[in-house]
Simulated scan of single mutants.
Amino acid sequence: MDDTVRFTDLKKKEYSASDLAKMDTQPKSVSVGPGGLAVAVCIGQVVLLKDKRKVFTLDNLDYQPEVGAIHPGGGTVAVGGADGKVHLYSLQGNTLKDDGKILDTNGPVTDVQYSGDGAFLAVSNEKKVIIVYTVADGYAVKNEFYGHHAKVVCLSWSPDNDHFASGGMDMMVYVWSLSDPEKRIKIPDAHRLHHVSGLAWLDQRTLITTSHDACVKQWTLKI
Rank of each mutant, 00 (worst) to 15 (best):
V86R: 04
N125Y: 09
G75Q: 11
G168K: 10
V67W: 02
V216T: 14
D213L: 10
L58M: 11
Q113S: 15
P34M: 06
N161Y: 02
L178R: 13
D19W: 00
L61K: 01
G100N: 11
W219M: 07
G81R: 03
Q204D: 15
T220S: 10
D51N: 15
V30H: 00
S90M: 08
K28L: 14
V141K: 13
P159D: 06
L91W: 01
D3P: 00
G116E: 03
K101P: 00
Q113W: 01
T95D: 06
K54F: 03
P72S: 05
D2M: 11
A122D: 04
V55E: 06
E66A: 10
E126Q: 12
A82C: 05
K12Q: 13
E144Y: 02
T210L: 14
M23E: 10
T4Y: 10
D59T: 04
K128N: 15
W157E: 05
D62P: 03
W176N: 01
P181T: 12
K50I: 00
I185G: 03
G33C: 03
D9P: 11
V47G: 06
L10I: 13
V132I: 13
D180A: 12
Y139D: 04
F120E: 02
G44A: 05
G44T: 03
L193W: 10
E14G: 12
K101M: 10
Y89W: 15
S90W: 02
L221R: 03
F120K: 04
A17E: 14
L221Q: 02
D117I: 10
C215E: 14
V32P: 01
D162V: 10
P72M: 01
V196L: 12
L121P: 05
K22V: 15
F164D: 04
Q64R: 09
I130A: 07
K142Q: 13
H87Y: 09
A119S: 15
Q113T: 04
S197Y: 04
G73A: 07
Q92G: 00
V152S: 08
D170F: 13
D19K: 05
V46F: 01
S16F: 03
G168V: 09
E144I: 08
L49M: 14
H71T: 08
G75D: 15
Y133W: 09
P108G: 03
